[in-house]
């Protein structure tokens, strides 16, 4: 009875609170109601896992979007260290151009890219194809991206050892696994296979390769990038020739329509078909080289 009396007295207060609370929470409720009502977020592909087709030497998941043309100019200077030929006289490799690649990459669809390039060192013409088999999604239902890459190179070398035209060809295929762990950090692991139609004595035509790298975005426009590439086998060949794994590190800076990559690597060439098997410079012997890429995107 006492409690009923209490209730009776408090009815206006209870009503008041009911009304107050409903008006107080109305705005939040409306937003929540809308949040519930709004269609579930679409399955969106994660953007900008990496900023270019390669980290430094290692392929990424990135392709050029549909009807976009990416003109890429990649310059690899000479070795910096004295032991590998870097001197004050050639400004530590700055005067040398170990390799230059000029390429055009075109997006056939948002997931399929083709490209054509010329590289100086092995006088290679390159035709490439890259396909995003699986894209990581923002809702993490697909936690990784899987990308397929393949190219063919044709060397225009004037070399007495090349007896047949077919000797000028090499083929490279790769499967690339990528994951953007956070807006700041992306990781890349890839397995590759290279076939060369023509190899030197004791060398192997078919080699397997494993590589990986990451991107760490430390400001909205600048990232630290690094990668590593190891090629298996070729024991007989390695007895006579020093060949090394390839490591690279650098900084990527992005402006409106350009990405500048400033990098250091011991790679002897720019294309996989070359550096995977022909890198005779090592970091420990001063074989690192300065390298940069300028990329300009055109939209059709």
């Amino acid at each position: 009875m006492l409690s009923f009396q209490l209730m009776k007295k408090n009815i206006p207060a209870i009503l008041f609170f009911l009304l107050l609370s409903s008006s107080l929470f109305a705005q939040d409720d409306l937003l929540k109601q809308l949040q519930a009502e709004a269609p579930a977020p679409k399955k969106e592909a994660v953007l900008a896992t990496f900023k270019g087709n390669k980290i430094i030497n290692v392929q990424t998941n990135e392709t050029v979007k549909k009807n976009n043309l990416d003109i890429r100019i990649n310059h690899l200077f000479g070795s910096i260290g004295k032991e590998s030929g870097g001197t004050f006289h050639n400004l530590y490799g700055f005067d040398q151009s170990q390799d230059i690649r000029i390429g055009a990459h075109y997006g056939i669809t948002d997931r399929l890219m083709t490209g054509f390039s010329r590289s100086k060192r092995q006088e290679n013409l390159e035709l490439l194809l890259k396909f995003k088999l699986l894209e990581q999604t923002t809702n993490q239902k697909v936690p990784i991206g899987i990308t397929l890459y393949g190219n063919t190179t044709y060397s225009t070398k004037d070399d007495i050892l090349i007896e047949k035209d077919v000797h000028r060809l090499t083929y490279f295929g790769q499967i690339i696994f990528t994951r953007k762990f956070s807006p700041k950090f992306s990781l890349d692991v890839a397995g590759g296979f290279l076939h060369r139609n023509y190899v030197l004595y004791n060398d192997e035509s078919d080699v397997m390769n494993v590589s990986g790298g990451f991107r760490w975005k430390f400001t909205p426009s600048a990232s630290f990038i690094a990668d590593y590439s190891h090629t298996f086998g070729r024991d007989a060949f390695k007895k006579n020739v020093d060949v090394y794994d390839v490591a690279g590190a650098g900084i990527e800076i992005e402006t409106g329509g350009h990405v500048f990559s400033i990098m250091f690597t011991n790679a002897s060439g720019i294309l996989e078909n070359d550096f995977m098997v022909n890198t005779e410079d090592s970091w420990s012997k001063g074989g690192m080289k300065f390298s940069f890429i300028i990329s300009r995107m055109f939209k059709f």
């Binding site: 994660v46 953007l47 900008a48 979007k65 549909k66 976009n68 923002t138 956070s182 807006p183 909205p220 426009s221 992005e254 409106g256 329509g257 995107m297 939209k299």
Partner: peptide
Amino acid sequence: EKELMEEHFNEKYLESDK
């Protein structure tokens, strides 16, 4: 209109991941 702009807009300015 340009995909690269869209990427910059999402990645750098509005940080749509976050």
